[in-house]
Write a protein that binds this DNA or RNA. Sequence first.
DNA 1: CCATTTACGCTACTACCGTTGCGTAAATAT
DNA 2: ATATTTACGCAACGGTAGTAGCGTAAATGG
Lengths: 211, 211
Amino acid sequence: MTAPVRRGRPRSENADVRILEAAHELLVERGYDRFAIDEVAARAAVAKTTLYRRWPTKDHLLVALVAKIQDEVSVADTGDIRRDLSVYLTAVATGLDRMRRVGRDLTGEEDRSAGVVAELVAAAARHPDVGDVVRNLFARRNALPLALLDRARERGALAPGTSSEVLFDQLAGALYYRLLVTGAPIGADYVEELVGQVLAGPGATPHPEGT
Amino acid sequence: MTAPVRRGRPRSENADVRILEAAHELLVERGYDRFAIDEVAARAAVAKTTLYRRWPTKDHLLVALVAKIQDEVSVADTGDIRRDLSVYLTAVATGLDRMRRVGRDLTGEEDRSAGVVAELVAAAARHPDVGDVVRNLFARRNALPLALLDRARERGALAPGTSSEVLFDQLAGALYYRLLVTGAPIGADYVEELVGQVLAGPGATPHPEGT
DNA sequence: CCATTTACGCTACTACCGTTGCGTAAATAT
DNA sequence: ATATTTACGCAACGGTAGTAGCGTAAATGG
């Protein structure tokens, strides 16, 4: 936090707020496409150039918006790791499903859904700096569940050599893979099955094969 | 295959080929952004309208291109499920990494990477019909490894109740999650660790020292 | 008070995606 | 041959992302 003593005319904080609000409204109403920067500026009663001074591309605005919107997913630690994971991942899944429907399905609109998560991923791939922000976002979002896994391992509920990060990749990865790639549903029953199989590990080889 | 007897002037197959070739070249050269439809048409020596008659959006062209480019990942079944999975997933990972670098890094260009996979995911989310094609693409691509898992289960190398689909989600999901979301590297060592942990299952509680 | 610095609003502009209208080319049907 | 049908090429257009130039507003420094 360097001293906020700057030389010229200060940025209107009001403008930031109004832009983000207008963008939020339009995103929910219309989805990411059908979401025109000009319209955001107009609705925020701000010149387009003012908007671009803050966020150099639409993608940057999107990620700033998501960062603001994103709700914390709470993590309960009851000591029953399986149950805790199921609860957490179910919450994540419903959150993702809500994000997927943004701009669609609320109104009886056509079908040009946006899939905010998909757009976020694409934006992160397009601009390195957006990628940094997105990764930071997820890092903070995932810190609590990772800590949960760490504690479980220390407690002996997970095998000693277990990598929390890899374990989390298995769990979250399955959800995002279904959301973004295969489009398969991710209901509570799926989460339950996933957590069960991840923890059990199907490689129980009663009679090890191979040379 | 309905009879190819149609009434008017036939579509120039040559045009399809030339367009896809030009698009392929440009995609590799420039990446998905910086890839202008006008330029594809020009390079293919075809009117823009001719192109749009075949693929109604840039996204449609992209997915058609990827469908053509995508190389089969071979699946070996040596009987050692752990080894087979490692080999297969390593091949997938290197393929993904190659896709990620398309349009970047070949030239000493700036940094506006495209991330073809990310764009593909976004395209699938934007247009329902593109989504269908993409899902179909992956379904066919994943058929062999899924069959591998099925055989392993029947052979007793995987626990009887194991869901091949969920298991595959854990594996592929982890890779795509890293590629698209966290940006973490996915080298051979990671794949090895992933496969090991997925098969072992960290939930083996040797001495539950609960509350 | 006045110069400087930075932000704002406005207009105009470029580039690209995707569409439309129209004249022409290549096939089939009679 | 002629009519019909469908594709092609061309040119113009509308909509949106992002940029550039310029005059004006609001702050600080002397």
